[in-house]
């Protein structure tokens, strides 16, 4: 079920150089990203995967407008992106749920910032909390929630102001295996219902294979898009089917190759 929508997000020749202050007037430049090029089509689910430190999170944060780029161009729906905006919803690895707002208050936050009138907010909050199965926790403060529940608030919150693209930075990385699988299933459900374009950063091969239409594999630092693998399987996917395992194997082997593993040996990239 390859989606052939128009191009939504286009990243062209993106570079990112961090300048580290070493003290005593010395600095070191570290090239995190070097001429990154890719495009995402409308409604597509794209995963970015790569060895740790390859700059995949940096790339996502630049697309989110939270980090500045050094050079290159990020274009979303024809607009050049240099700052944050309501056309992108971000989900963070650390959840970053506001502890001083209730679950509903967190979901409302972005809508308040966007200036959506009060009367229109409540139905959206109810709908999204139903979508992420948190409707009975509407008025609860986040400290009472488990990690998985907090991240569901994070997802609902990022969807609330109806962004064009969802940017997810290892959203399930801090969760235990069971919670992670249930949230992956939930995300597939949410994605099929909302038809959002998703850019998803992960370090898990299985997660990338399970969720994505296309997996973009990044090289070690300086990060660039080294390979692209299409996962052309119908959803919901069966992670134990032969077809799925073949896809997972392909991603794992390609990633192992990028990380310096020679051919002919069994793939050692596990979940």
């Amino acid at each position: 079920m390859a989606i052939q929508g128009p191009v939504k997000l286009q990243v062209t020749d993106l570079d990112k150089v961090f300048t580290i202050d070493e003290g005593w007037g010395r600095t070191t430049d570290i090239t995190a990203l070097e001429s990154v090029n890719f495009e995402v089509r409308s409604g597509e689910f794209i995963s970015l995967i790569g060895p740790s430190g390859c700059g995949k999170s940096t790339l996502l944060m630049i697309v989110a407008g939270l980090y500045e780029k050094t050079s290159g161009d990020v274009v979303l729906d024809g607009h050049h992106i240099n700052d944050t905006g309501f056309d992108r919803g971000v989900v963070f690895q650390e959840f970053a749920v506001f502890p001083w707002l209730t679950v509903a208050g967190n979901v409302r936050f972005g809508m308040r910032m966007k200036g959506i009138p009060k009367a229109e907010r409540d139905p959206v909050v109810d709908r999204l909390l139903r979508l992420v199965e948190l409707e009975s926790f509407k008025n609860v403060y986040p400290y009472r929630l488990s990690g998985g529940m907090k991240q569901r608030v994070g997802i609902a919150r990022a969807l609330a102001f109806d962004p064009e693209v969802m940017l997810m930075d290892e959203p399930f990385g801090a969760l235990d295996a069971q919670t992670r699988s249930s949230l992956q299933q939930l995300l597939v459900q949410v994605w099929m219902e909302t038809h959002k374009t998703v850019l998803f950063v992960t370090h898990s091969v299985r997660e990338a294979a399970y969720l994505s239409d296309r997996v973009l594999l990044m090289s070690p630092r300086p990060g660039r898009i080294a390979e692209e693998i299409k996962i052309d399987l119908p959803r919901p996917r069966d992670v134990l089917s032969v077809e799925f395992l073949e896809c997972e194997r392909k991603v794992a082997e390609t990633l192992a190759g990028l990380m310096g593993q020679s051919d002919g040996q069994p793939a050692w990239v596990t979940d």
């Binding site: 992108r88 919803g89 971000v90 963070f92």
Partner: peptide, 15 residues
């Protein structure tokens, strides 16, 4: 204040 909370606020349009 936790840097991730500030990022979240900015990502949701607070400036």
């Amino acid at each position: 204040v936790d840097a991730s909370l500030i990022r979240a606020g900015r990502a949701m349009g607070a400036k």
